[in-house]
């Protein structure tokens, strides 16, 4: 026994090496369930705390990634909602225009105001239509008459606005049927010109296009009479008309194209 112990001690390194190689190889030879049985206590003691931390860290990293993804989705949805809102408003405006303008002998071409003429903010605007448009066609929006096409390069055109010096409209008082010419009033609303002092026009009356002159069809709303002045030395009344259209916020308009023949030239 003593001899064996002394031999073992002398060759302890060799013994360690042999044992260190044989034991794991025996472990490797075991069945999987037996290996699991051996591995489980080691896992419980050494790995469980770190697994728990690792899971939490992974969850934390995932939360960050999810948060970033959600933020980006949120921005996208906000943008999409804004686009939908814009489309809804545009759709609403076009519906109102169509309701206001049920004219079977005209084709209504939708157009967007893309710019105002530099330096002539209140006299002309540039529009882009959905199809080819000609010169002199009337332009309206959901509130009434906007102006007429002054020049066109196809789908892009310049509109002479009603409140500018280049647009005159044959109009009448919708209540008294008095005729006149709507023209600009040096930047302050419109004037219904040519109303004789003996003709009746009252504040609050609606002014519509009369259809005379050929450019604008009859019945397009122009504005409301704001003030009527009678000067004894003048033969015409001074009729100030407030336009229905808000020219400061023009966005979508309709170009009225006659379905048959040329109109307005």
């Amino acid at each position: 026994m003593k001899w064996a112990t002394s031999r073992l001690y002398k060759n302890r390194k060799l013994f360690l090496i042999i044992a260190g190689l044989i034991v794991p190889l025996l472990l490797f030879a075991l069945q999987l369930d037996q290996k699991t049985f051996v591995a489980r206590p080691l896992q419980e003691v050494f790995y469980t705390p770190f697994w728990s931390i690792s899971n939490k860290l992974t969850a934390l990293v995932n939360v960050y990634n999810d948060n970033m993804a959600l933020k980006s989705e949120n921005v996208r949805l906000k943008f999409e909602r804004m686009t939908f809102e814009q489309n809804r408003l545009e759709d609403q405006r076009f519906r109102e225009m169509l309701r206001l303008l049920p004219r079977p002998d005209y084709k209504l071409i939708s157009a967007d105001v893309i710019a105002h003429d530099q330096g002539r903010r209140w006299s002309s605007a540039i529009i882009r239509a959905s199809e080819y448009i000609d010169q002199f066609l009337p332009v309206v929006d959901e509130k009434g008459l906007v102006g007429k096409i002054a020049s066109s390069t196809g789908t892009v055109a310049t509109v002479s606005l009603l409140i500018g010096p280049n647009c005159r409209v044959a109009a009448r008082d919708n209540q008294t049927r008095t005729l006149g010419i709507i023209k600009w009033n040096t930047g302050r609303g419109l004037l219904l010109d040519g109303v004789a002092v003996e003709n009746d026009v009252f504040p609050g009356d609606t002014i519509i296009s009369s259809g005379m002159g050929g450019v604008f069809p009859e019945g397009l709303t122009v504005g409301v009479v704001a003030k009527v002045d009678t000067i004894p030395t003048e033969v015409f009344k001074q009729v100030v008309v407030e336009p229905f259209v808000d020219f400061g916020s023009l966005d979508n308009v309709m170009v009225m194209k006659p379905l048959s023949g040329s109109f307005g030239n």
């Binding site: 034991v23 190889l25 490797f28 699991t36 051996v38 591995a39 896992q43």
Partner: peptide, 14 residues
Amino acid sequence: IDALSPETLGLGTA
């Protein structure tokens, strides 16, 4: 280290 994957338990150790 080997206890992490019981399928190869022993082999990595050896």
